[in-house]
């Protein structure tokens, strides 16, 4: 029973979100010209379709749970991968670490600058990903970050974040060293 309810959760959440967005879309209906469809028509049509599909799926799962599972498993392009994922061990802490690290990277980028933030991100990402060869981690993260700085700032002309305070000074020194003006 708990499994059934869990499998319904995404559809219930999507249905609720769609209903809320449908209500929100009413706010821009006022802009419609007389005799013409308003700017709310298209999103609302999609939201109605989304709600209908979610409700149908909820009903189907409640009444024909076995059939729904069979269909998902029988899918030719996703079945193999699904089975693989289902049978493998999950590393929740690894995933949580990866997501946390990725969020921290985006937060730190403006402060630390691209080079420092990226070198740290790469090294910690490999460590969180259960890779333990320290020399490879350090060299890959430092050389990789340098290569990215060189390629994107010197060749592709993308202005990567330099950071603030001492980190900016470090980035500027590094760019001068790499011959990036």
């Amino acid at each position: 029973m708990f499994g059934k309810l869990t499998s319904l959760a995404p559809y219930v959440a999507l249905c609720a979100a769609a209903a809320w967005l449908y209500r929100d879309a009413g706010a821009f209906a006022a802009a419609a010209r007389p005799g013409q469809l308003g700017p709310d028509f298209w999103p609302r049509a999609i939201l109605v379709l989304l709600i209908v599909v979610c409700v149908c799926e909820i009903v189907r799962r409640l009444l024909f749970e076995g059939t729904a599972r069979d269909e998902s498993a029988a899918s030719p392009t996703s079945g193999g991968a699904d089975a693989q994922v289902a049978s493998e061990d999950r590393f929740a802490w690894c995933l949580a670490g990866g997501i946390g690290l990725t969020i921290a990277y985006v937060l730190a980028l403006d402060w630390l600058g691209f080079f420092v933030a990226t070198a740290l991100y790469l090294a910690l990402f490999m460590a969180v990903g259960r890779y333990r060869r320290t020399r490879v981690i350090v060299s890959a993260s430092v050389l990789g970050s340098l290569a990215f700085v060189y390629v994107f700032m010197k060749i592709v002309y993308v202005s990567l974040p330099l950071g603030r305070g001492p980190f900016k000074a470090l980035s500027v020194w590094l760019l001068a060293l790499l011959g990036v003006r």
Binding site: F28, P39, L49, V53, S72, S75, T77, S78
Partner: peptide
């Protein structure tokens, strides 16, 4: 799409909704 039709339709609706975010072209 391969997976169940309901899931593919939901995925499609989410994509279509994402495309509506921003300033509307007509109005």
């Amino acid at each position: 799409g391969g997976a169940s039709m309901a899931k593919a339709l939901i995925s499609l609706c989410i994509g279509l909704l994402l495309a509506t975010v921003g300033v509307d072209d007509t109005y």
